[in-house]
Design a protein around this nucleic acid. Structure first.
Length: 281
DNA sequence: CACTCATGTACAC
DNA sequence: TGTACCTGAGTGG
């Protein structure tokens, strides 16, 4: 489930598993053969993430930049790596275990200048200590684009994806169709601080849980429920089902080529201008 | 076996 | 705004 929390979690796990020691690198699939050969046997010095981008720092100022895209996965395990099955772009092995990368949108070696350039085009990441939410607010507060679309723009905010976008707007009661410039600064600050609470929890648990204790099915006197993506959420992929808070049918629409989910009753907070603006369709 | 879908992005037009 | 693409899991015939 590659939203930002996945990459930060991976950075931590890879750093723990391989950090400070030489790592064996191969590309069983062959599509990263040159890069793997360059890294093979060098020391992993650091592992970090910015938004959905993972950076593995190897000796010699070589950074492996990984972006999982829509369906990339990094599978880690202890001990010996299993026989190769399917397409493995990059396999790292060391005394601590193995890590297999499949299907990434990006897997490449960058120098420090290229790494810096990549970071420069990303918005603030709620999971990074150096994040400046003010830079995101400057863009949001001037934009006619919907807040739902702005939250998916990695140049505005880096890390949240389709799940966090839908869930944070629900938790803050904000209509996803509202233009960024019609949000108050207080509303943006509430979105940001909520992301700063939710996403570290995602890093810790490895899943996205957004349902407050008082709204769990148990607390609401409903049968227990398991969401098919592995976490407990209010609206993401729950179209047609009753809202956990008010019972209204959760709605869905395609916005900028992504599935958006929201509760039309709970998410009715409207700004001064766009209260009647329809969702793009 | 064929087909569909996905938590993302980049590029063409 | 459309579409191609990185791959695996799930579904249905």
């Amino acid at each position: 489930m590659p939203e930002g929390h996945t990459l930060h979690r991976l950075a931590g796990e890879l750093g723990t598993m391989f950090g400070g020691r030489p790592v064996a690198a191969t590309s069983p699939q062959g599509r990263f053969a040159d890069g793997a050969a360059l890294l093979d046997g060098t020391v992993l010095e650091s592992a970090e993430a910015h938004g959905k981008h993972l950076m593995l720092g190897f000796a010699g100022e070589r950074w492996v930049h990984v972006h999982l895209g829509l369906y990339g996965t990094f599978t880690l395990g202890p001990g010996e790596a299993p026989p190769v099955r399917g397409e493995i772009r990059l396999r790292l092995t060391g005394p601590g275990g193995f890590a297999d990368l499949r299907g990434p949108a990006a897997c490449e070696v960058l120098d420090p200048i290229e790494k810096k350039a990549l970071y420069a085009r990303l918005g603030p990441d709620p999971l990074r200590a150096d994040a400046d939410p003010g830079s995101a607010w400057r863009r949001i507060s001037r934009s006619r684009t919907s807040i739902a679309a702005l939250l998916m723009d990695q140049a505005v905010v880096a890390g949240p994806g389709n799940v966090y976008r839908a869930e944070v707007l629900f938790r803050q009661g904000i209509d996803p169709a509202r233009a960024g410039r019609d949000l108050s600064m207080a509303e943006w600050e509430a979105i940001w601080s909520d992301l700063c609470a939710l996403m570290p929890e995602g890093v810790r648990t490895g899943r996205i849980d957004t349902v407050r204790p008082e709204h769990t099915p148990e607390a609401m006197g409903r049968p227990p429920r398991v969401d098919d993506h592995g976490g407990e959420v209010y609206v993401y992929r729950r179209a047609g089902q009753p809202c956990l808070v008010c019972g209204t049918e959760v709605r869905t629409a395609v916005l900028v080529a992504r599935n958006l989910f929201w509760c039309p009753t709970c998410q009715s907070r409207s700004g001064p201008v766009s209260s009647t603006s329809p969702l793009a369709h």
